[in-house]
């Protein structure tokens, strides 16, 4: 048979397969076990130990939340790029992977309340032209200070012109760069932050753009001792409304369970304690 026929049959087959796409899951009222996916490559939020076990702020927080919800939890590792499609495909029930609430994501999944938040910004090695970037002490909010944000980015543009910036793909960070700086910089998208860190030390990149929390963890590594966080931090808008637990649409009961558990963990200080342990500062939401 020719490939042409095969191609035709293939398209027909795919159409048939897709027409079976799932209807909305009827919500399960009783959760006994919850499978939670994390990336395992995003220190200090979540990362892998030499023996393959998962560790980090979100791993410990997840265990605490599961105890509060009185469910058995299984934490699984999943590459970032496929983390939402695999949730929808039913590989697991929830995501705790430094994922921010955004409008785009809310079209396809639901979120609990936020349990952490951190500004986002550039980092560069010593000697990089990016060190010239204008840096204010306090981060700017894309929602509340649009004029200041626009002015800051305009001031950045001459320095950033033609620079190669690494960013993790499929993130709020890559969305931010494409929205505000697409015609100014060359954006390189990586599978994980660890990979763009490697390319930053290798000298293939002029800078990276990531969450400040992750950048600070990277700075702790000896090879990154002279890496600096530069430029005013940004938050809000397409950078999201804080990190939260993601669940499938239709599982809002599970999201509510997580929200209640997060409320408790914040009220008794557990969340702040874990945050200080892993980030050095309290990154839990203010209220």
């Amino acid at each position: 048979m020719s490939i042409a026929k095969a191609l035709g049959l293939g398209v027909v087959g795919a159409v048939l397969a897709l027409s079976l796409a799932p209807q909305d899951a009827t919500a399960q009222s009783e959760w006994e076990t919850v499978r939670i996916a994390t990336e395992g490559a995003y220190a200090p939020w979540n990362f892998s130990n030499p023996d393959g076990t998962l560790d980090g702020f979100e791993i410990e927080l997840a265990r605490d939340l599961c105890e509060r919800m009185e469910v058995t939890c299984e934490i699984v590792q999943q590459d970032w790029a496929g983390i939402i499609p695999a949730l929808q495909a039913g590989q697991y029930d929830a995501i705790m992977a430094g994922m921010n609430i955004t409008d785009q994501r809310e079209e396809v999944i639901s979120f609990s309340r936020s349990y952490a938040g951190t500004p986002h910004g550039f980092a560069a090695m010593a000697g990089s032209p990016l060190l010239e970037l204008e840096t204010a002490d306090a981060p700017l909010s894309l929602d509340d200070d649009p004029d200041q944000v626009a002015a800051t980015i305009e001031a950045w543009k001459p320095i950033l012109e033609g620079k190669v910036i690494g960013v993790q793909g499929s993130t709020t960070n890559s969305n931010f760069l494409r929205e505000y700086l697409d015609d100014v910089i060359e954006i390189r998208e990586y599978g994980s932050t660890e990979q763009h860190d490697l390319d930053l030390t290798a000298g293939r990149l002029d800078g990276i753009f990531a969450a400040h929390s992750a950048l600070k963890a990277t700075q702790q590594k000896p090879e990154f001792a002279d890496m600096q966080i530069v430029g005013t931090g940004m938050r809000g808008g397409i950078l999201g409304r804080g990190v939260a637990v993601g669940v499938r649409q239709g599982d809002e009961d599970l999201a509510a369970m997580f929200s209640a558990a997060i409320d408790e963990a914040m009220a008794d200080g557990t969340a702040a304690e874990l945050a200080v342990k892993w980030f050095g500062v309290d990154v839990t939401p203010a209220e």
Partner: peptide, 11 residues
């Protein structure tokens, strides 16, 4: 297989 497999199984 990874994304489609479990969708198909679920169906």
């Amino acid at each position: 297989f990874y994304f489609g497999g479990s969708l198909a199984l679920t169906n």
